[in-house]
Simulated scan of single mutants.
Amino acid sequence: MSASSDTRPPVTHPTPAASAPSVGYQGEPGAFSELALRRWFGGSARAVPLPDFETVLARVRSGEVDFAILPVENTLAGSVAAACDAFLRAEVDVAGEVVEPIRHQLLALPGTPPSALRRVSSHPVALDQCRAFLARHPHMRVVTGSDTAGAARAVAEGGDPAAAAIASEGAGERYGLEVIARDIHDRPDNQTRFWVLRSWGAPMAAPQPGVSHSMLVFETRNEPGALARVLRELAEAGLNLKALTARPAEEPWHYRFIAEVEGDLTSGRGAVAIASATPHMVRSRVVGPWTVRGPGGADGVAAPHADAAGCRRAIDAVDRALVRLLAQRRDLATRTQSLRTGGGDLLRDPAREAEVLRHAAAEARAVGLPEESVRQLFWRVIETCHPAVSEAPPVT
Rank of each mutant, 00 (worst) to 15 (best):
S214H: 05
R232Q: 13
T192Y: 02
G238V: 06
G263S: 10
P207T: 09
T192D: 08
Y255P: 05
F194E: 05
L216W: 06
Q191D: 02
R229G: 01
R198Y: 05
E251I: 07
L244T: 01
T192V: 10
I184H: 00
P203K: 05
A237E: 06
G210M: 05
M204E: 15
G210Y: 10
R256I: 10
Y255L: 15
L241P: 15
L216K: 05
A205Q: 10
N240R: 07
A237M: 10
D189T: 11
P203I: 04
I184M: 03
G225Q: 01
E250F: 12
P209Q: 00
E260K: 08
T245I: 15
R221D: 02
F257K: 09
D189Y: 13
A205T: 08
T220G: 13
V230D: 10
L197C: 14
W195K: 00
E262H: 08
N190T: 07
A205I: 02
F218S: 01
M204Y: 12
A235R: 03
N240Q: 07
R187T: 12
V230E: 07
G225K: 14
Q208M: 06
F218P: 00
S212I: 07
R247Q: 14
R229P: 01
T192N: 12
E250A: 13
T192H: 06
R229M: 02
A226E: 02
E250I: 08
A206M: 03
R198D: 07
T192K: 00
Q208T: 06
L234M: 14
L239A: 00
T220S: 11
W200Q: 09
T266R: 01
H185Y: 05
R256L: 10
R187A: 08
E260T: 12
V261W: 01
L265S: 02
W253F: 11
L265Y: 04
L239S: 01
L234I: 04
T220I: 13
L227Q: 06
M204K: 09
R187I: 03
E260A: 10
G201P: 13
A205C: 08
A205M: 05
E250P: 11
S199M: 09
Q191M: 06
E250R: 15
W253I: 05
F218R: 01
L241R: 13
E223T: 13
L239W: 04
S199E: 07
I258T: 15
D189L: 10
L216M: 03
Y255A: 10
A246P: 12
N222F: 14
L216G: 00
E219N: 09
P224L: 14
M204H: 12
Q191T: 13
Q191W: 02
N240D: 08
A249R: 02
M204L: 11
F218Y: 13
L239F: 04
D264R: 02
L231V: 01
V211S: 07
F218G: 00
H185P: 01
A243V: 14
F257D: 07
A246C: 07
F218W: 07
V217G: 08
G238Y: 03
R232L: 12
F194A: 00
R247K: 15
H254L: 15
E250N: 12
K242W: 03
L265E: 04
